[in-house]
């Protein structure tokens, strides 16, 4: 697990920062023997901060994608642990399997008890393989559905944290009817009378993300992305070229800011400078504040209003002319 002392892995667009940081380090090492270098070091440190701010305020869509997919990005488990260090994990779809790519449990967030569901990509290689790199099987969606129904029965709000490349294109997944599993989740989520808040924390990959994402409020972390198809898939179908991923990222309008602008997402949650992986505690704290603020409003509605609010939200999405 990453904490604040661990070195983070730099991304391509962060290279200028890495170079500058190395220069500063070199000078710092010489400071003891050459105290006259002090002003230079201070100057470079200022330059570093300026460059850092400028880089992170001018990210291209593909840079957001890289941050969203960062190997050290906090996952659902990291958030649940920080929201409530005594949260209880619940397992299994009661039919066939316990898909590790979807985790669920009973979590206390501030004054609220909620049913929390999230995707898990797995941190090390072994965990990643167990979690199928965050691509759920139909059993994962059905596990989530069981939790939706549990929440409805006990009048508990639902929080979902989404970070998945999408559904898994596998033979068993098709034979176990993942299309139906996703569709059924959408219909059940539409029927609930408890508040549902979905947060795209990393990658919002298509139907696999939506399967736990039909909610009263959709939040996205600042560098998260959400799209109808992976940029790689889009590039290969529309441009027939693997080199066009950056172009596909731009064309699809998949960043938090862009999706917020077209009103599909309700709130963009700020990340620590440099991305959520720079400071797990701060990120979890900021997200918790946003969730509590949203729950404060949603829990004031009657069960009927909560359902109606959700239906109306989706009824309005889409752009057509007559």
């Amino acid at each position: 697990m990453v904490n604040n002392e661990t070195k983070t892995v730099p991304l391509d667009f962060e290279q200028p920062l890495t170079v500058l940081a190395q220069q500063i380090e070199l000078l710092e090492a010489q400071l003891q023997s050459q105290p006259e270098l002090e002003p230079d070091v201070t100057h470079l440190r200022d330059q570093y901060e300026i460059l850092r701010r400028s880089i992170y305020s001018n990210l291209r869509p593909i840079d957001h994608l890289a941050l969203a997919r960062h190997a050290q990005r906090p996952y659902a488990r990291d958030y649940f642990d920080r929201f409530d260090n005594t949260w209880m994990e619940l397992h299994g779809d009661r039919k066939m399997a316990d898909d590790p790519a979807i985790i669920s449990g009973l979590v206390t967030i501030g004054p609220y008890k909620v049913v929390a569901i999230g995707t898990d990509k797995g941190r090390n290689l072994r965990q990643k393989q167990i979690c199928n790199f965050g691509m759920p099987q139909p059993e994962g969606y059905r596990k989530a559905m069981r939790m939706f129904e549990h929440a409805e029965k006990f009048h508990l709000p639902i929080i979902t944290l989404i970070d998945t490349p999408g559904a898994y294109p596998g033979m068993a997944a098709e034979e176990h009817n993942q299309a139906e599993a996703i569709a059924r989740n959408l219909m059940v989520l539409a029927s609930l009378t408890v508040p549902v808040i979905a947060v795209v924390t990393g990658e919002g990959g298509s139907g696999g993300a939506l399967a736990i994402g039909l909610a009263n409020r959709i939040l996205m972390l600042e560098h998260a992305v959400y799209s109808v198809i992976s940029p790689e898939g889009c590039a290969s179908i529309l441009w027939r070229s693997a080199d066009k991923v950056a172009t596909a990222c731009e064309a699809m309008k998949m960043t938090a800011a862009e999706i917020h602008k077209i009103s599909v997402v309700d709130e963009v949650v700020d990340e620590p400078l440099g991305g959520a992986h720079q400071n797990y505690d701060l990120m979890a704290h900021t997200l918790q504040k946003s969730l509590i603020k949203q729950l404060d409003k949603l829990t004031k509605m009657s069960p009927k209003q909560i359902k109606q609010d959700r239906l109306e939200k989706y009824r309005k999405i889409g752009v057509t002319v007559e």
């Binding site: 996703i182 569709a183 799209s227 109808v228 998949m254 077209i262 599909v264 999405i317 889409g318 752009v319």
Partner: peptide, 8 residues
């Protein structure tokens, strides 16, 4: 884009 996903 995302509008299509939301039609689901």
């Amino acid at each position: 884009g995302i509008f299509s996903l939301m039609q689901m």
